[in-house]
């Protein structure tokens, strides 16, 4: 038996592969920004004095972290449809990924909040900073700086997990791969190429977050050490 590999047959479809890769990055970007917002709010909510808010945030985080993304995507997809909302696959994918990554972000941010020394907050109170100033300058920004590495790897994992959106026919990279392999019968070559593209995308994302970190955290840039 001889195995003949024909990578050019797949590579000549590069425009659709590129389109898929771009859509994957778009999905990841939207979900990262929205998920970071929701996650931070949920992390703040978990520390709330109202047991109702704290409980709701805890249920959200635990429910999402203990069920598979694939089930969540189907629930959002069919759930919204049964409510009579006809949304595009892209919108549903962004919504499901946002809900998913929000829960993980909340857990990471909570760890960041807990790592802020009590004395810092007391010192800020001693300097008569307002509650809002304390929350922003003493708690939120240093917490984000502390957990930034964990957040970025979570967001890269989210980009990889977005491949699951191919199951609700969002035309991202994996869905493009499925289409190409059914058209060319070159499944092995197609998925090898797509795997390489994902590796490149994750390297690009990591490089991007590293650069963003230098811009966002000047202290790290000047001293060369993390907080």
């Amino acid at each position: 038996m001889s195995i003949q590999l024909d990578f050019p047959a797949v590579l000549e479809r590069w425009p659709s592969l590129l389109g898929g890769a771009v859509l994957t990055l778009e999905l990841a970007c939207f979900a990262t920004v929205l998920g970071a917002l929701i996650g931070t709010l949920a992390a703040i909510g978990r520390g709330s004095r109202s047991p109702l808010i704290a409980g709701a945030c805890k249920i959200y985080v635990e429910a999402i972290r203990n069920t598979p993304l694939l089930v969540q995507i189907f629930l959002v997809y069919f759930g919204l449809a049964s409510l009579g909302l006809k949304l595009s696959a892209f919108t549903v994918a962004v919504a499901a990924l946002t809900i998913n990554v929000g829960a993980y972000t909340a857990e990471i941010m909570r760890a960041g909040f807990e790592a802020i020394p009590r004395g810092q907050i007391e010192a800020a109170e001693g300097l008569a900073l307002s509650r809002l100033q304390i929350y922003w300058h003493i708690i939120l920004l240093p917490a984000i700086e502390k957990v930034y590495p964990a957040l970025t790897s979570q967001f890269v994992l989210l980009m990889l997990a977005s491949s699951v959106c191919s199951q609700i026919s969002a035309e991202e990279l994996t869905a493009v791969a499925n289409y190409i392999q059914s058209d060319t019968y070159r499944a092995f070559e197609t998925y090898i190429i797509v795997a390489v593209l994902y590796v490149i995308l994750s390297l690009v994302m990591r490089a991007g977050f590293w650069g963003l970190g230098l811009v966002l955290f000047p202290r790290r840039r000047r001293l060369g050490t993390p907080l």
Binding site: R186, V199, S202
Partner: peptide, 22 residues
């Protein structure tokens, strides 16, 4: 390599990919 690739693609590679090369 593995951490930069989605599990879904690894699964497709293992099932459809290996089938396609016999």
């Amino acid at each position: 390599l593995v951490q930069g690739t989605p599990l879904l693609v690894i699964l497709f590679l293992g099932y459809f990919g290996l089938a396609a090369i016999g």
